[in-house]
């Protein structure tokens, strides 16, 4: 029997949709399993400490460098755009709001996704293909609890700190460009930054940071744990972790912005 062309088209459209929904279901179950283990002993505090160091402390340089250049470029762009409406004075406040609400968490999240999701996926993927995860099971240790939970908790805790640091460095980048290139008075720049920045501008960015940190570690662990065999499998898992974490960060950012600022 020859399939109707419309049925064939629908089948071709439906297959990837079903695959995407199945993947979403697997990720949701994985996230649920991790959340279910967070408050139940045993707690691997040493692994949590190591993960905090790896994810938080060692990400500071990349987040700081991203923030300082972004803050500087933002000041130049706002000044150039603002000068069309004689609104150059808004540079300090827009740089501060832009960094705190959007660019700090989003760019920080993307940089951490590139650095951390890839590293987690490669590490856990390698552990899987070299049977280290099977070895954990035979040693009565739940791999999800030992490998995934500390990383997810560490990323969720560390990201808001990284975002706050990135915000401060980004605002400082704008201030540096403002006083050296745009003829702003230093004290006035800082006063305008503080006067127009509200607590929720910073708070919303920190909440976004925590969500993005959760996403980054979740994707790294999920793709690492589901890595196929061999070097190619680990490579594919690493790539998928970075891509999926980045896309999910951008999607989550839009949703959170809708929730926080449109009501």
């Amino acid at each position: 029997m020859i399939a109707h062309p419309l049925a064939s088209l629908l089948a071709n459209l439906g297959r990837p949709v079903l695959q995407a929904l199945a993947a979403l279901g697997r990720v949701t179950l994985f996230a649920g399993a991790i959340l279910g283990h967070i408050l139940r002993p045993p707690f691997y505090l040493r692994e949590l400490g190591t993960s905090l160091l790896q994810i938080g402390w060692f990400s500071l340089p990349v987040v700081g460098l991203t923030a300082i250049f972004t803050g500087g470029a933002l000041a130049l762009q706002i000044y150039a755009g603002g000068s069309r409406f004689n609104a150059e004075a808004v540079v300090p406040s827009i740089v501060a709001i832009g960094m705190a609400r959007e660019l700090g968490p989003v760019l920080g999240g993307l940089m951490v996704a590139a650095r951390v999701a890839s590293s987690i996926a490669a590490e856990i993927g390698t552990m899987k293909v070299t049977e280290q995860i099977d070895a954990l099971v035979t040693l009565s240790t739940n791999p999800l609890k030992y490998l995934a939970v500390p990383r997810v908790v560490a990323a969720t805790l560390a990201m808001p700190v990284l975002v706050a640091t990135g915000d401060a460095i980004g605002i400082m980048g704008g201030w540096l460009v403002g006083i050296t290139r745009l003829d702003f008075n230093s004290a006035t720049y800082l006063k305008n930054t503080v006067d127009f920045l509200e607590p929720w501008d910073i708070g919303s960015g920190l909440v976004k940071g925590a969500v993005f940190g959760f996403i980054v570690a979740l994707m790294g662990c999920y793709h690492g744990m589901n890595s196929a065999r061999g070097a190619q499998g680990v490579g594919a898992a690493t790539k998928s972790a970075v891509v999926s974490a980045s896309v999910l960060i951008l999607a989550a950012n839009y949703i959170l912005t809708e929730v926080f600022f449109t009501s």
């Binding site: 099977d134 070895a135 099971v137 035979t138």
Partner: peptide
């Protein structure tokens, strides 16, 4: 599992 020990082919050391 506490009753078992296992030597893996590649060692599987952490």
């Amino acid at each position: 599992l506490a009753r078992f020990g296992m030597l893996f082919q590649g060692g599987a050391l952490f």
